[in-house]
């Protein structure tokens, strides 16, 4: 019986192989006649498309740019995800470059280790990397899309301290890495700027070198529960998918939480919309879109970083739900001070 099944299957495969050969040609050749010359390669961070966060934000920016430039979202964008253990990141970038995608955008600092070497190997291709500074690398065809997360987080700290009743707030970081520490540093500084004696609990879900803290809602929930029980009434997370757990804990505790990266109020369930006070926005989509637009109109200055901060609205606070409408003036005040340089926000805790 199994033999027959195997034969049938093999036959089926052979037939469909023949069938697909006929139309296989044009889908493989990648046209290139749609939206000008723009063919964008995107190498995702762990998790790939559909992470409701970082990767989705980046691809939204790419699609917006391609559309506005008259390209075809299906034809002119190639998205690749790394494998489970991230061991093939180099392959992703080189294969995109080999296949003549230009520019190639690497989403996430994890590519920072290798992208300079690959960019040097393909001098005719433009590369961009999100979240990593490339200024000191001296590679002409490489651009760093970096963010002043500490500035946005500072405002989140201001909002939290202003709204906290108990004078006790919390921070849950995904992984104890320099990037997430920028969030913490800004958040704590912002909170202390409002209430110098405020108590800020800080927890990281996984240590450096272990990315599991970004995909561990259970761990996020436990961490946040601990903070709420200890008296915190607002918890800010910078923990990717683990933030879901933080929101759950907030719902259960009847307290509030602050989201990250995108306006998480918009994608939350009605329960959680009641507790997501605001989100610290990190507009990867805007950064990527701007980058592609400047690439398309030849105004790109590569070999350096593009900083996205409060002044460019690359970072900021969301206002969905109206929970922080009453303190808008305080926030606006601090924002202006930061932009003006009157307030210096630290980048390390």
């Amino acid at each position: 019986m199994t033999k027959t099944a195997a034969l049938l299957l093999a036959g089926g495969l052979a037939l469909s192989a023949c069938a697909s050969d006929e139309d296989g040609g044009d889908s493989g050749s990648n046209g290139g006649n749609g939206g000008g010359d723009l063919k964008v390669g995107v190498a995702y961070d762990t998790g790939g498309r559909g992470d409701k966060s970082f990767n989705d934000s980046a691809i939204a920016g790419v699609e917006a740019a391609v559309q506005s430039l008259g390209g075809d979202v299906d034809e002119d964008i190639e998205e690749l995800s790394p494998n489970e253990d991230d061991s093939n990141r180099e392959e992703l970038l080189t294969q995109l470059a080999e296949a003549d995608f230009n520019p190639v955008i690497a989403v996430g600092f994890a590519y920072g280790d290798i992208i300079a070497d690959i960019a040097a190997d393909y001098p005719d291709t433009q590369f961009a990397i999100v979240d990593t500074s490339v200024e000191d690398l001296g590679v002409d065809n490489l651009t760093g899309l970096i963010f002043a997360e500490e500035q946005g987080s500072f405002l989140a700290g201001v909002a939290a301290a202003s709204k906290s009743v108990t004078g006790h707030i919390g921070f849950v970081g995904g992984q104890q890495s320099p990037l997430i520490e920028k969030f913490e540093a800004g958040y704590v500084a912002g909170a202390e700027a409002v209430k110098p004696d405020i108590v800020v609990d800080v927890t990281y879900l996984s240590p450096a070198g272990d990315g599991s803290g970004f995909g561990d809602p259970e761990g996020g929930k436990v961490a946040a529960q601990g903070m709420y029980q200890a008296g915190a009434d607002i918890v800010f997370h910078a923990a990717g998918g683990s933030g879901e757990g933080v929101f759950e804990a907030a719902v259960e505790a009847g307290q509030r939480a602050i989201g990250v990266d995108s306006d998480q109020y918009l994608s939350a369930s009605p329960d959680q919309q009641g507790v997501i006070m605001t989100s610290m926005l990190k507009r990867v989509d805007l950064a990527v879109e701007d980058y592609l637009n400047s690439f398309a109109d030849d105004s790109l200055e590569s070999g350096t970083d593009i900083l996205n901060d409060l002044s460019t609205e690359g970072v900021g606070l969301s206002e969905s739900g109206g929970y922080i409408d009453d303190i808008q003036d305080v926030i606006a005040d601090f924002r202006q001070q930061i932009i003006d340089g009157d307030v210096e926000v630290p980048t390390t805790p």
Binding site: F109, A110, G112, Q176, S177, P178, P207, T348
Partner: peptide, 20 residues
Amino acid sequence: ASWLLTGPLRGSEEGAAIIT
């Protein structure tokens, strides 16, 4: 391993996104 990497064996400069 994480402690060794961020502490005694840290080779990358302060603030770099990737610690090595």
